[in-house]
Write a protein that binds this DNA or RNA. Structure first.
Lengths: 214, 214
DNA sequence: TGTACATCAGTGAACGCGCGTTCACTGATGTAC
DNA sequence: TGTACATCAGTGAACGCGCGTTCACTGATGTAC
């Protein structure tokens, strides 16, 4: 695994090319959304003609899969970096928001409306689990609420997906982090707050603090 | 407005035809998502050939706009029906969830990832406001929490979009209803809970009760 | 009740477009002796 | 250092497809006298 760095000049060039193709793909997604992603358009922007892309990706699906993988990776890395620099749960929430605002379509590619036919490969869910685990760990450091909700007791018997050295209430809080953050954020990104003149950042902040004080 | 019922036989037929076209469009959206909506495919299913649809809709955009309008209308009607039959805030939440689960793609058409080029016409935001107003009214009936959050005080000065005979805290609670319900619901609809074996309905229920007891 | 005309639903051919993908091929870059 | 061969990046033409949309036209249905 340590030789992930390109070995021969050809491989190095190949890696650079793949990276540039992906960069153009992201650019295209950022402006027109993931559904408008076109191999030919990317090729034109990269400066070569259509079929050349097949030297680097088996097809459109593989490219999209790779982009989704990278997006999950990028999010996980962002949260990890926030945590490693001492951020608590709310710090991680703000890091997540910044990450989403930096490239809304990247966020939506992962958490937005799924493409009906497409099904994500297994390793993306693995990276997604990684993110979830970081959230659970972050909430583990917080004082525990004594009251157990109905969902908490339900979770006690349906928690195989989560690490088991953690109380169900903590899992619940991590889940709520996810759903509430996603709720405000995705409505903001989708433009559903335009017309209401309040500042979405403040609504977000209140929602984050609700996750801590509740 | 009372003569909205079709007058001549021709107009009646025309209305029926428009309705059937829309029905097929919904069917298509339900199975393949809104991005895959194709006029030619609809025409084939209705039993006539492509260009005939232009007798009923000016083009693809107008059809989609109409579908979005109907979706907003349907949601508003559902919530109103729930309220009129005595449902409180949580009853309205469950009605909303049932409405979403009945046709996930319909929910996603309205609250999902926006089509990057497309911009919704003004009257859809009017219907959306109608829904919001009903939520605000529902929360007005509830006992008021005395503490004002930072966002509450921010809202005091940015609330032109809302009725002004209602405290800012109530507006905030209606907004949180929206964002939290959307958070759980959209993640469920997008399939992000598959793999975790808990029951989304129970997570939803807990999230609804958080809106009341907090 | 019958005729003359207008309205309108629906057809079939066609246009232009962009898509993903395949294929045979050219040229340059690397490798082995 | 030079030659022979293999590897691989990239091209251009082509395939088949489905899309939204236009246009001229046919036939049926309605309306007016």
């Amino acid at each position: 695994m340590t030789d992930a760095v390109a070995r021969s000049p050809r491989e190095r060039y190949r890696e650079q090319m793949r990276a540039e193709i992906k960069r153009c793909a992201w650019e295209q997604i950022a402006t027109a959304g993931s559904s408008a992603l076109s191999l030919n358009a990317i090729a034109k922007q990269v400066g070569m003609s259509g079929p050349a892309l097949y030297r680097y990706f088996a097809g459109r699906d593989e490219l999209i899969t790779e982009l989704i993988r990278d997006a999950y990776r990028s999010l996980a890395d962002t949260l990890r970096a926030a945590r490693d620099s001492g951020a608590d749960v709310s710090g991680m929430a703000y890091a997540l928001r910044e990450w989403a605002l930096a490239d809304p379509q990247r966020y939506l590619l992962v958490y937005g409306t799924p493409v009906p036919g497409y099904h994500a490969p297994d390793d993306t869910t693995a990276i997604s689990n990684e993110t979830m685990t970081m959230l659970i760990e972050a909430f583990s450091a917080l004082p525990l609420d004594e009251r157990a909700t109905p969902f908490d007791t339900h979770l006690e018997r349906h928690r195989r997906w989560a690490p088991d050295n953690v109380p169900a209430t903590t899992l619940h809080r991590a889940l709520s982090f996810w759903t509430r953050i996603h709720g405000v954020l995705s409505l903001e990104l989708a433009g559903h707050f335009t017309g209401m003149e309040f500042d979405p950042a403040l609504l977000f902040a209140d929602e984050v603090s609700s996750l801590l004080t509740e």
